[in-house]
Design a protein around this nucleic acid. Structure first.
Lengths: 120, 120
DNA sequence: ATAAGGTACTATGTTTTGCAAGGTACTGTA
DNA sequence: TACAGTACCTTGCAAAACATAGTACCTTAT
């Protein structure tokens, strides 16, 4: 039951990666190493062992498709793209994310003013 | 392997509740039903079965303390308050949260401009 | 006194997911 | 053939949210 910052960060990442992967792929076809690079660029570290199962889940849910493409520097790559359903779901997730941000801001902002002076 | 909005919402909530609970308690002593009410007010639904174990974890980690207080309308209540360590940890979590928000915004914002015209 | 109903706290089992670690397979070079 | 690099995949573990059920205390009514 380790309660440290690293662990909390991991917990916060949950459910966010789904949205971020969809958002990044929405820019255009991408293969996993590209996606990892893009996330790194935004200070969102992702492990291979996280991303591959995630992409498989999204593909099985009909939100992504992929095509194989040969590479000159190694084995062939899976280039992912959004399906129409994926586009819809991405938009819903963005809305959900925005609502969550608002909720957290709301909880945190009211902490400064409220000190509830007790009658005395 | 259900991939629906409700599930994604739940996953996004993860790790946030810890921060929100600390933030709410930071306003002053609270007992669990109060906290649930406060969160509901900010559109952050929490189940009893989630909050009670969470508070226990935070207390065992030395971030919270509590005292019993009698109630006129039912059994005694556990009023929680932050320890100095809890205050510190709350601040760290807020920073972590802000970094995450920035990262997600960064990923989502660049989706409009980037279309990477390929050389041809 | 006892029963009923509400409030508050606790415990158990399931599910999901991030991550670490390890594995497979294709490519080019020495 | 051996190797290094790239890319993809799988397995097992741990943490946490939730549903559900249960315990305990208090007040009120019969």
């Amino acid at each position: 039951m380790n309660l440290n910052l690293e662990n909390s960060k991991t917990q916060m990442r949950r459910g966010i990666l789904e949205l971020c992967a969809l958002s990044i792929i929405a820019r255009g076809e991408m293969y996993p190493s590209d996606i990892i690079e893009e996330m790194k660029r935004s200070d969102l570290l992702v492990m291979e062992g996280t991303l591959y199962p995630l992409l498989t889940r999204l593909k099985n849910a009909g939100l992504l498709t992929y095509r194989w493409e040969e590479s000159k520097t190694g084995p062939p790559r899976k280039y992912y793209a959004l399906t129409p359903e994926g586009e819809l779901f991405k938009n819903e997730l963005q809305l959900t994310w925005q609502e969550l941000v608002n909720a957290v801001n709301s909880v945190n902002s009211s902490s400064t003013t409220q000190n509830i002076p007790s009658h005395e």
